[in-house]
């Protein structure tokens, strides 16, 4: 179905559809656009345009709390992405290729972190860390919530997302390619290294990008498992919004927006390599 499909819609209906589509696009983009525009507002009053200025970016980036939050966010995102890429890919391979005891249980469990709401995941982990610390503290060390608990929590949900994306890729994997490699004298490891891994790599990379995005996006879970000094950027923004809207927030938001868009374009470029549009959305 590559051409324009005219299936029996009247001209008025077709025009109505087009108008509607652009209204929806406006709905999706206008708020973001306004936010970005006002981040360059020279006036400190949020509703009055006072000329173009980078002032708020400067102020935001001079704010130690914000720079520290950015650093925490980046560290957590990188660590959780790398770890979950490795663990998630291994789980995906095991589930796709092997039968072993506990496979069914794992297959069911690995999807749960995706399904359950953030807030429940957040309180679960909060309770878990509270209990774990109580237990560990009885041996001496005094543990508190911090950057490591945030990273550990992010890995917990990112494994699942990476696993799902990689499995979607494995689903379409032509197993005869591996048989061909083995027929051509490759050992099991060589087959994995030379054939399987290169072919699932786009899936692994897409999973990694998704993990990175989700980690940088997360507010709720981070808010519950971070301690003083380990505030992530979204948690900082979230608590600031509750106190009120400032032009500084617009500036930070615009930066976050730019980062997300860079990630989207990156992942689209990755998937473009072979997947059709429908596969892209299926992966999500």
């Amino acid at each position: 179905m590559s051409g324009v499909v005219e299936v029996g819609l009247g001209r008025r209906t077709r025009r109505g559809l087009a108008v509607w589509a652009w209204v929806v696009f406006a709905f999706l983009y206008v708020p973001i656009f306004v936010l970005v525009v006002f981040s360059f507002n020279a006036s400190s009053r949020v509703n009055i345009w006072g000329g173009f200025s980078f002032q708020w970016y400067g102020e935001a980036l001079r704010n130690d709390v914000i720079t520290s939050a950015i650093r925490v966010s980046l560290i957590v995102a990188l660590v959780s992405t790398v770890v979950s890429m490795v663990l998630g890919t291994a789980v995906a391979l095991a589930l796709d290729r092997y039968r072993f005891r506990g496979r069914r249980a794992l297959d069911g469990t690995v999807y749960l972190p995706i399904v359950i709401p953030d807030i429940t995941m957040a309180v679960m982990l909060l309770v878990f860390f509270a209990e774990a610390f109580k237990f560990i503290d009885s041996f001496g060390p005094r543990l508190t919530l911090g950057i490591s608990t945030v990273a550990l929590s992010h890995i917990a949900f990112n494994i699942s997302f990476v696993c799902v994306v990689v499995r979607a890729r494995l689903d379409q994997f032509d197993r005869t390619l591996e048989e061909a490699a083995r027929d051509l004298y490759a050992t099991g490891w060589q087959t994995f290294r030379r054939v399987t891994l290169p072919l699932i790599m786009p899936g692994v990379a897409a999973g990694g990008l998704l993990a990175l995005t989700l980690s940088l996006d997360d507010v709720v879970i981070s808010a519950f498992v971070s301690g003083p000094g380990s505030t992530t950027l979204p948690v900082y923004v979230f608590s600031s919004i509750r106190r009120g809207v400032t032009p500084e927030l617009n500036a930070i938001s615009t930066l976050m927006l730019a980062a997300s868009i860079a990630l989207v374009l990156g992942s689209l470029a990755l998937q473009r390599r072979r997947a059709s549009a429908s596969q892209q959305t299926q992966v999500l």
Binding site: L177, E179, A180, R182, D183, T187, V195
Partner: peptide, 15 residues
């Protein structure tokens, strides 16, 4: 990988 045979696969299975 230890047999003196090679296969031409049905859909070729070219890498």
């Amino acid at each position: 990988d230890r047999r003196p045979v090679n296969t031409v696969f049905q859909a070729y299975a070219l890498f």
